[in-house]
């Protein structure tokens, strides 16, 4: 997993492989260390993610709640079909946008 701070006060989070309860716990800890301190937006780059289950949804929801309090936004970029299907099923699209690429996600901020 790669986490970097980009322009527009955003954190670009790029997990690799499979986002389950195991990786979700690690992501939560690493992301929360960086929130506040000028960071108010998160872009999840899911282009290298081959799998996600409901633990990923819980992790994204939790980060959304924190970002909402900071007045920022959460955007998911480039999810593969399996991951997109879980996101759609979860109802997350009512509050979080999907972008085809990180570049386009950054433009939305």
């Amino acid at each position: 997993m790669n986490i970097i701070e980009t322009d527009k006060n955003a954190l670009l989070v790029t997990p690799e492989g499979e986002l389950d309860h195991h990786l979700a716990g690690k992501m939560r800890t690493e992301i929360d260390k960086k929130l506040g301190r000028g960071i108010i937006n998160i872009i999840f780059d899911f282009s290298h993610l081959s799998f996600m289950d409901s633990s990923g949804i819980g992790m994204i929801m939790g980060r959304y709640k924190r970002i909402q309090k900071l007045g920022g936004r959460v955007i998911i970029a480039a999810p593969k079909p399996q991951v997109k299907r879980i996101i759609e099923m979860s109802g997350l699209l009512g509050i979080i946008q999907i972008s085809p690429s990180v570049k386009q996600a950054l433009r939305k901020l």
């Binding site: 939560r28 289950d53 409901s54 949804i57 819980g58 929801m61 979860s90």
Partner: peptide, 14 residues
């Protein structure tokens, strides 16, 4: 409190 989404069984069923 552990940020569980509550979707586990729904996903299994679907």
């Amino acid at each position: 409190e552990q940020e569980r989404s509550g979707l586990g069984f729904s996903i299994m069923e679907s």
